[in-house]
Design a protein around this nucleic acid. Structure first.
Lengths: 350, 350
DNA sequence: CTGAAAGCGCTTACAG
DNA sequence: CTGAAAGCGCTTACAG
């Protein structure tokens, strides 16, 4: 019967049915068991090609789509992955979000956006993961505390981590540029361009990305016999960058500044100009991120690229593979820091 | 018994249980029916204060949290709302996302990020809504086609729409600035500042935001007896803005330009300077959005504000109210366009 | 490879 | 107000 009359149920219920075809109806129309329908839609399930074909045909005829919530409940595979993000003032996040969501779509994964701005503790996130049967977490947040990351680690929740890249024996899947290498590159570049007193504006204290790049920066410069110093910005905003730069300028004695992010560098750039100093002659500037805005002619910032597209894709692909093979070992994708040459750096001495 | 032994089930299953307490266990510990536990957690359910208190106590003791997936399946209230977004190159979206997700958290709603960039048809979105029992849609996308919006409308899916604001008899909940008023304000401002040949760089043809602002712009200028013209950018990117501006400049005969977005205006600004013309003396510029970047000293763009925080919050709050009262009628929140005065406009004639 | 059955963790008409 | 029961739409050991 084409009208799909289902065995009389005692009462009409609302549920999420939404007037949509259910697995049971497909089973009846195809003349198979419900289990067969389920198997037909589950890759790797034990089912013959013939049976599967029959099911698929009936399903298409009825416009059937498995209800993922029910599948998640029954089988634990909701297809939901939580994107933990903060730093909503940094356009780089938007880019990451764009790439990550596109990659997820390719894997049939659905992104839940977990805004961890402010003091979202790991426990809060963990609760949501439980409440919704979220399968994995994608950490897209540079501002995550060590405590948070350790919490995720211990919880056993699957995850991948952008903004983290320790090539040796990673504790979890991660992808990123190694901050220390970026900092070394910046330091070496300043030296090569003839700057003699480089400084660094690092991110706010307490961030996981603070110590490593600062070390890379000072160590390299020490080795080259150049003076150097590191100050912190109070946040990642351009304003914070401008204030830090103003402070550096007030103390004199610096002619090049590496900023831990492009947002910081953009603020610093404004501060340098406001102080009547010339970029890149008086002051050289290197950012870190290569935001779209950094390429605008008004900004035109020399910076170290952070390959957001590759990193987002790598993390999502890893999560998708992990889903098919839970025994997968953590891996790291380490991108090389790359200098994007624009106008805030003197050219190399010839 | 504190160990919560549950009646012997025939087999161990994995499910999403995750080792977490279930409703049944709470019921047993509290010595009440499962229904009572469910009711205790559902505002407005028929349950005595005494019973509820007893349940809540047991629940807290066990660290119980209702599984939202199961609740969604059984009751149709998943708490999931889909954010339909595109334009991931525009930082304004990130801002909107930030405000919307924060507002949702306040209502216990969870955001699913639906990236509609490219050609995501309404049918695709509808499928996801079904698959996951998404309760409502928040349209945060300026680039949605009329077809898409009509599809949502007809589908009966609940939604709220940012970037839309027709005060009279709204067909659905919407919030935004009326483009036509923004365009009129820009036109009037140019006239007041003594510009004599204003032009407008509108968004790409085909966008829902094209015709209305263009009309507002030209009509106002016609009435004031000033020449005017409208060109389209090929996209919303700064590059597209720069190309449109270059085109305008090449033809001469314009001394002020209203851009349909700040991203466009930022590109236009670069093009004006690249052509060796002075802003705001030779060419006045007004953008639309008031992005964070527009306030950077290097940009310092005069623009018409789009109150993203209020708009995002309004939409989310509406969705939350609609959830509690499905009979709620659609409403519109119309924000007044407001000129943010910066350096790309001559000052008023004295 | 298949099907019947139990179960995932909740909700809600129904009958007190 | 309460509880027993049926149901939401799927999955997966179990026993062929």
């Amino acid at each position: 019967m084409a009208d799909g009359a289902v065995g009389a149920t005692r009462r009409k219920r609302q549920g999420t049915s939404n007037g949509k075809t259910t697995l049971r109806e497909v089973a009846e129309h195809a003349g198979v068991s419900p289990a067969a329908v389920s198997r037909a839609f589950t890759p790797g399930s034990p089912i013959s090609d013939a049976l599967r074909a029959r099911v698929i045909e009936a399903a298409e005829g009825l416009g059937y789509r498995p209800n993922r919530m029910a599948a998640g409940l029954a089988g634990g595979r909701s297809g939901l992955v939580g994107i933990v993000a903060d730093g909503f003032a940094d356009p780089g996040l938007l880019d990451l979000l764009d790439h990550a969501t596109r990659a997820m779509k390719g894997h049939g994964l659905i992104p839940i956006l977990l805004n961890s701005e402010g003091q979202e503790s790991f426990e809060d996130i963990q609760r949501i993961v439980h409440d919704y049967g979220i399968e994995a977490l994608l950490l897209l947040s540079p501002g995550l505390s060590r405590r948070f990351v350790q919490g995720v680690q211990k919880s056993g929740i699957r995850y991948a981590h952008a903004f983290e890249a320790h090539s040796a024996d990673p504790a979890a899947a991660q992808a990123g540029v190694r901050d220390i290498l970026a900092a070394r590159l910046a330091a070496a570049t300043f030296a090569e361009r003839g700057y003699v007193a480089p400084a660094m504006i690092a991110g706010p204290e307490g961030t996981r990305h603070f110590r490593e790049p600062a070390n890379g920066f000072t160590t390299t410069l020490d080795r080259l016999g150049l003076p150097n110093r590191v100050v912190h910005a109070e946040s990642w905003s351009p304003d914070a960058g401008a204030r830090a730069m103003a402070g550096l300028l007030a103390q004199g004695a610096c002619d090049a500044v590496f900023c831990a992010s492009d947002t910081l560098a953009i603020g610093a750039l404004g501060a340098v100009r406001a102080a009547g100093r010339a970029v890149p002659e008086d002051i050289g500037l290197i950012g870190y991120d290569d935001l779209a805005a950094s390429a605008w002619p008004e900004i035109d910032l020399s910076t170290i690229a952070f390959p957001r597209a590759e990193i987002a894709r790598y993390c999502v692909d890893f999560l998708a593979r992990l889903r098919d093979d839970p025994s997968l070992k953590p891996e790291a994708f380490v991108a090389e820091p790359l200098l994007v040459e624009r106008s805030t750096l003197r050219s190399a001495r010839v």
